[in-house]
Amino acid sequence: MSPRSLSKHQRVIWRLAAQLESQLPDTHGVLTKSEVVIDPGPPPTIRVPDVLAVPSEGIDVNLPRWDAADVLLAVEILSIGSKRTDRVTKFAEYAEAGIAYYWLIDLDEPTSLTAYHLIDGDYELVGEHSGRATLDIAGTPVELDLPALTSSRAS
């Protein structure tokens, strides 16, 4: 079991979720630290992305964990202990499991986001961003203020 995220990491998760939630269509919502079944096993492979965009109907029925194929977006915030796992292991697992969009957020200055889209079973780089960024999630433009994720006060 992994240790809990440090305080700055937790604040970034909360702020990113808040920025995303209001911009997604009503068909999807944002969750943090929810279980995703990557491989049902046995034994099952379960991952817990920092932020997820998932169908609202699953949230409404209060699903305890998500099938990876139902996850539209998974976001991992890089930390010292997770960089290799997020960039290599989860990158491959999420693609194989069919998660359409994968973002990595690096908190080193300047805060940056690397965005991938699943095309023909492989993730393709669709952008590297710092500052303010507009990204596409399944035809929905999403505007993010990356510096606000780590500022001492959210703007």
Rank of each mutant, 00 (worst) to 15 (best):
T134E: 15
R84H: 09
I137P: 01
D50G: 02
L135A: 07
D26H: 11
S22N: 04
D70Q: 15
L135Q: 03
A97D: 08
G81I: 02
D108C: 02
Q10P: 01
G58A: 09
A154P: 01
V48H: 05
S7R: 15
T45R: 15
V75W: 03
L16Q: 07
D122R: 09
S79N: 06
R47G: 01
I105F: 05
R15V: 05
L118R: 09
K90G: 07
V75S: 04
L63Q: 11
A115H: 06
T27M: 05
P44I: 08
S82I: 00
I13P: 00
D122M: 07
T32N: 08
P49G: 03
A154E: 14
S56P: 00
R15P: 00
A17R: 07
E76S: 11
A18Y: 08
L146A: 07
E76T: 08
A97F: 12
K83N: 04
I80C: 00
T111P: 06
D26T: 12
T134R: 14
L6D: 13
D136V: 07
P110M: 10
S130R: 13
A53D: 03
N62K: 15
F91C: 04
P55I: 06
D39C: 13
D39K: 14
S34F: 13
Y102T: 01
L63A: 14
A53L: 02
K8P: 02
T27R: 11
A148V: 12
A18V: 12
P147K: 13
E96I: 12
L125D: 11
N62W: 11
P64Q: 15
E124Y: 06
D108P: 00
A97S: 14
I119N: 03
P55G: 11
L20E: 01
I80S: 07
W103A: 02
S56E: 13
T134G: 08
P141D: 15
T45S: 12
V88C: 08
T114Q: 12
P55Q: 04
T140L: 01
P43R: 14
E76Q: 09
S151W: 10
R15I: 09
R87G: 00
R15S: 04
Y102Q: 03
D67G: 08
Q19C: 05
F91H: 15
S79E: 09
V126L: 00
D108N: 06
I38W: 10
S22Y: 05
G98M: 09
G127S: 02
A17C: 06
P147T: 08
G98P: 01
P49N: 07
E109P: 15
P49E: 09
G98A: 06
A138C: 03
V71R: 07
D50A: 04
V71L: 10
L118K: 05
S155F: 11
H28P: 01
M1D: 14
K83G: 00
P49W: 08
E124V: 12
L24E: 02
E128P: 00
D60C: 01
A53C: 10
V75Q: 02
I38Y: 14
P44Q: 13
A154D: 07
Q10G: 10
I38L: 13
E93L: 14
G121W: 09
A69R: 15
E96T: 15
G139A: 02
P44F: 11
W103M: 05
I99C: 03
A68C: 11
P49L: 04
A18D: 13
Y101W: 10
D106N: 10
A18L: 03
P42K: 11
H129L: 06
I46A: 09
I46S: 06
T114M: 03
D136L: 01
